[in-house]
Design a protein around this nucleic acid. Structure first.
Lengths: 200, 200
DNA sequence: CAGACGTCGAACCGATCGGTACTATCTCCT
DNA sequence: AGGAGATAGTACCGATCGGTTCGACGTCTG
């Protein structure tokens, strides 16, 4: 039966359902680890519907990564906003939030960086560049508000800590200390960058 | 013609040739981005030869990652050995070496971490865990020799910097400063950890 | 009520996938 | 000299790939 009797016809909702299912399964199994047919089976949609909404598998991948980057960025910016006015507290909030993410079951690293690792062109690379740019903007803002001597430098260093902690948490973090380790390092760099007599 | 007239028959060399070609093409195009047939065409070997040496594509992937991890670890340890006795100099050597790698044309991030991003089981994950463990051992050794208050902590933080710099260099490093940024951060953390009145 | 639109389910397409089998031919070792 | 082992080349296997097409049937909008 096409279109089960009684369902409300809502293209936007259908699109969102495909997007949500694809986001989860692409993250868990990798972009090449699942075919379009299986994906359609999981979400309960037909291939025609998927291709009408996204045009191609690459189009779907692009949409998934776009949406995920937007959501993560909003989520992280939200934790900064609710952390109060102190830049140090904001930094703590960022890494505490990351720590919560690392501890979630099914954590597999950053979906966007992972995607860029397996498709070094297509939409994935562009989304990754933009995604890290957003992170950098957020972190540099904290560095500026803290009065760091070289906020751009500190922002880049904080980005390195963030991405490094994510990789380490994914692949080598027996004590689950990556977020805490990175937080301490971030605090130390912040303190050093805001000291009056600053080193290099 | 099977076995071109005049070639020396050397299974080990054949194996190495396949391994070298696979290492390059897997790194550039991703594990799923190239098929066994194309790979055989590039290296000039037959499928039977490949399967006799490696058993399966996954076996080949495992061998590629194993060999690459060994080689990178030796390479990095070598730069530390030739950097002299000062732990600070050794740390500089590590990140300077990384900076040279980042600047190479065709740099695509850490092949092993990339592989683990697209195959979160199989041999890739185990090799990644071991690979980061080797890095951690190297960095913790530097931290110990420097007399850090908490060498294990500093080692883990240095690992985060190393991996973070690699990711950032791959995806968002317009000024190609990632290695230098990480080096400065590493130096700052080392200085802080070796100060007598140390902050947590 | 009528047409436009959305959707499912299935069939189908050519291409490619990882992997196997076999033959002809060459090198190496005794 | 002769057997054993290694190799290229090719054909082949079933499965799956991304993608297209079509008909039946449903909802939505006028």
């Amino acid at each position: 039966m096409p279109v089960p009797k009684g369902t409300s016809l809502d293209p936007a909702r259908t699109r969102d359902a495909i997007l949500a299912a694809a986001t989860e399964i692409f993250y868990r199994r990798g972009l090449d680890g699942v075919g379009v047919a299986e994906l359609c089976g999981v979400v309960g949609a037909s291939k025609e519907t998927l291709y009408r909404h996204f045009g191609s598998k690459d189009g779907l991948i692009g949409a998934v990564l776009d949406e995920r980057s937007d959501r993560i960025t909003r989520w992280l910016a939200g934790t900064v906003d609710t952390a109060g006015p102190d830049p140090g507290d904001q930094l703590d909030a960022v890494f505490d939030t990351l720590g919560g993410w690392y501890a979630e079951p099914g954590f597999r690293g950053c979906a966007i960086v992972n995607a860029a690792a397996q498709r070094h062109d297509s939409p994935a690379l562009e989304v990754a560049v933009r995604h890290l740019g957003r992170y950098l903007e957020l972190l540099t803002g904290i560095a500026e508000r803290a009065g760091a001597a070289q906020p751009a430098l500190l922002g880049r260093q904080l980005l390195i800590l963030l991405e490094g902690a994510t990789v380490v948490a994914d692949h080598h973090d027996p004590g689950a200390t990556a977020a805490e380790d990175a937080k301490r390092a971030a605090r130390a760099l912040l303190a050093q960058a805001t000291r009056k007599a600053s080193v290099t």
